[in-house]
Design a protein around this nucleic acid. Sequence first.
DNA 1: TATAATTCGGACAAAAAACTCTTTAAGGAG
DNA 2: CTCCTTAAAGAGTTTTTTGTCCGAATTATA
Lengths: 152, 152
Amino acid sequence: MVLSRTSQYAIQALIYIATQAPGEPVLNRDIAERLNVPAAYLAKILQNLCKHGLLDSFRGRLGGFCLRDGMQKSSLMLVLQLTEGPDFTKNCILGLKECSDETACPMHFKWTPVKNKIISMLNYMTLDDLAKAVLTGKYRLADLPASAMPAR
Amino acid sequence: MVLSRTSQYAIQALIYIATQAPGEPVLNRDIAERLNVPAAYLAKILQNLCKHGLLDSFRGRLGGFCLRDGMQKSSLMLVLQLTEGPDFTKNCILGLKECSDETACPMHFKWTPVKNKIISMLNYMTLDDLAKAVLTGKYRLADLPASAMPAR
DNA sequence: TATAATTCGGACAAAAAACTCTTTAAGGAG
DNA sequence: CTCCTTAAAGAGTTTTTTGTCCGAATTATA
């Protein structure tokens, strides 16, 4: 339901970076390990976020990724527009090319208000908020690794 | 956003069948043409819906597909559980294997109420309702074919 | 300057989703 | 019984998404 793996990885990684000291580059390897996602794939995703200006990257020793200045306040909507495409909220739930108040699919008027709830939620939540939530220790950013699973 | 092509085709086809005279089998070919979707692919989808008891199918002359008795009242939720898998509403938006009120991802408590809106909408809408809406002529079940596009 | 650590970029591979083709079985009508 | 029409079933193809690999470029430090 709802998000591609790429988007999920992107959001997780951005939140993780936002929990770290700002200005201190975070290693792709560390993020991947922490989130338990494939490092090489994650690297591609982070590179893409760099290109779009959300992250800064640094090569060589002491390199890594960090949030570009000000981007702690980015909404999830902004992130998803980068990973899912600029109009991922514009699509008709039944896949019609044309679906608007004037030329509506039979679900349109029921779906639109629900979609608007999703959109406001995504606009409302920022990386900062989510990072703060994680830092309280009450929330999980990734599944526990198998090694941390309780012995059955 | 939200649904696979397979699910979209399934819903469109079911609504279309529900708009036709009950008990009169509808040809796969006709549905595909009407909805402008690949016929061979649609056939697979309809076969699957048969296996799960939503449709009845008949071979040979006068053959085709029709809604199994009573299934006009099926909710979209039921349909989607067949096409997307039985717990497509259970997944964490960030993709965590474990995400519940006790072990929550940082989006969990914001996402859950929105997800519940989606779920009630899907439970609420039935094939019958949607078919009736289409029959008013105010809604479109498929994009206009290129041939029906206004000359530029 | 040499070295080690890191991202970058491109090509490649595997898996999943979307879609096609071909053959078979079944049913209705002449 | 035969012919035509239809869905069923299975294998195969294409496209997209996800994931891997490797060599090159960049940077800090010794």
